[in-house]
Design a protein around this nucleic acid. Structure first.
Length: 501
RNA sequence: GGGCCGUUAGCUCAACAGGUAGAGCUCCGGACUUUUAAUCCGGCGGAGCGGGUUCGAGUCCUGCACGGCCUACCA
């Protein structure tokens, strides 16, 4: 790529193949044929022809049925005066059988001027060949979209990962798995939405541009509004707006949409990713665990065909009721130290962290230290779905304090294959406590914690207006799709992942 | 950000103690009327960028760019 303008497409390869195709393009035009016509009548999708005839017709039998089809020419096998052409659209492929007897010399000449990759329309009778391949016995051929760039290797396809993401149109053309993942993603989102709708949740859309970034501990992207002359932030979560809606009397709301976090990229992190968030009045985190399990199990059934999966070559069982384990208990078990507690001596906790190679910082309280131990020792080991519950207050500024333990909140994360898929809690609804928690965050921010929250006065006003008790949930949709599609890179489930421009 | 690995033809991949780069697919020319990555014959086409060592560098050293994986932060 020699262009330095961001956003410009890759330069056409200065290749002889391109030149040949351009020459063909010129010849088409010289003959008065528009290589990019407005379109021809296509009455039959390739998939429909296959569905109608796949289990019918004996070899060499003709159907008597004429069709008009179209697709990208991905293979051509010539046998002198008999030529087989394979058209593909999406996952459907159909062969054309081309002979001078039916296509005429003119049609054969058209065939001669086509390249692999060209979009082609054809009419003809549905037949089955001597070797048993369902085909259209072509009577006419029309070029409907000239391809000027060569197709990737017809057997190996496109392997280069970066090119697959950058040129998704090529990837989707030649890699069936790219198309499969796309379908799993669509089915996953459809299932989540269906389950929430059936439970009476209202789908809403809240702003992407936030004057105060909030709802999660993360660094935001900053942008600028010219007319208002103010900086705005791309949302890092939807939480605070959705809770405003519950305060407004909408008892069950959800939103599926993009959030943005200004953090590093990895196989598990894309700067923009899709999150489902839902809020339900009068629910607590136990109810939300039930909901989470139902959502993910339904998505697994409808997008992955069941709850018994293989991920990264290991079986995962999403079925049944998932265990609910207290975070503190998990840390105690992992360290073999029953005396780990949120009111334990800070120096002892630091020493324990050091023993396990956990890096610590000044100013971290016991809650943060225990969380770090959990993340280092436990989280990655939880393979089958596990609800990890009761997170320390210190690291949960929006969650309600536990009804029977002042050190923790009624919060859980759902962990599958060692990764966090979702995060939820009995929501904090007390405005005074929320203000105190925000101020605590603001102090951390002032002390240099870039992920810490700011005081959101507008949100506090909504809380002061009064909100019902509620349970909230956030699910990382991309990660759920990764699990259900069995892929280990988030870039495989995002069509156009963020790449260096 | 750190570590490791990588970048050879449009695509997928080779080779060699440092000796002037090879195959398949695509494309072009030719043969072939039932193929399934059709087959057969012929042809075009190439070392990420910059330094250095050397008679000679794709190969060794070095800087840069880009990418992959792991790690760190997070969903």
């Amino acid at each position: 790529m020699s262009s330095d303008e961001p956003g410009t497409p890759p330069d056409p390869p200065r290749d002889e193949v391109i030149a040949e195709r351009r020459a063909k393009l010129d010849r088409w035009r010289a003959r008065g044929v528009d290589p990019y016509p407005v379109g021809v009548e296509v009455t039959d999708a390739l998939a429909d022809v296959r569905a109608a005839w796949d289990d019918k017709l004996e070899p060499e039998e003709a159907s008597g049925q004429d069709v008009a089809v179209a697709g990208r020419m991905v293979l051509r096998r010539g046998h002198g005066k008999l030529v087989f052409v394979v058209l593909r659209e999406g996952d459907a492929e159909l062969q054309l059988m081309c002979q001078p007897q039916t296509l005429g010399q003119g049609g054969m000449a058209i065939l001669d001027e086509l390249d692999l990759g060209d979009w082609v329309a054809a009419t003809g009778e549905v037949v089955r060949t001597r070797r048993g391949e369902l085909s259209v016995h072509a009577r006419s051929l029309t070029l409907i979209g000239k391809s000027l760039r060569p197709m990737p290797d017809k057997w190996h396809g496109l392997r280069d990962v970066e090119t697959r993401y950058r040129q998704r149109w090529v990837d989707l053309t030649v890699n069936a798995d790219a198309r499969r993942v796309l379908r799993v993603r669509a089915a996953t989102i459809r299932a989540l939405r269906a389950e929430l709708e059936e439970r009476g949740y209202l789908e809403v859309e809240t702003p992407l541009l936030h004057p105060v970034p909030g709802g999660a501990l993360a660094r935001p992207f900053v942008t600028h509004h010219n007319a208002l002359g103010v900086d705005l932030y791309l949302r890092i979560a939807k939480e605070l707006y959705l809770k405003r809606l519950v305060a407004g009397g909408l008892p069950r709301v959800y939103e599926i949409g993009r959030v943005f976090r200004n953090e590093g990229l990895s196989t598990r992190h894309n700067p923009e990713f899709t999150m489902l968030e839902s809020y339900e009045a009068h629910a607590d985190y136990h109810d939300v665990m039930d909901l989470t399990q139902a959502l993910i199990q339904r998505a697994a059934r409808e997008a992955a065909g069941g709850t018994d999966l293989i991920y990264d070559e290991r079986p995962v069982d999403l079925g049944g009721d998932w265990p609910r384990r207290r975070l503190l208990d998990l840390v105690r078990a992992a360290t073999g130290r029953a005396d780990v507690a949120y009111d334990a001596d800070l120096d002892e906790l630091r020493a324990l962290c050091a023993t396990h190679g956990v890096r610590t910082e000044e100013g971290w309280g016991p809650g943060k230290l225990v969380l770090e131990l959990y993340e280092k020792l436990v989280e990655g080991e939880l393979w089958d779905p596990t609800f990890v519950i009761d997170y320390p207050v210190e690291v949960s500024p929006l969650a309600r304090r536990h009804r029977s333990d002042p050190h923790t909140t009624e919060r859980f994360e759902i962990i599958v294959t060692g990764r966090e898929l979702g995060n939820a809690f009995s929501e904090l609804t007390d405005p005074d406590e929320q203000r105190a928690r925000f101020e605590e965050q603001a102090r951390a921010k002032a002390a240099g914690d870039a992920d810490a929250m700011s005081v959101d006065a507008d949100y506090l006003a909504a809380m002061e207006f009064g909100m019902p008790p509620m349970g909230g949930l956030g699910i990382g949709v991309d990660r759920l799709v990764m699990l259900l599609a069995g892929v280990t890179s988030i870039r495989d489930v995002i069509l156009f992942p963020t790449l260096r421009p």
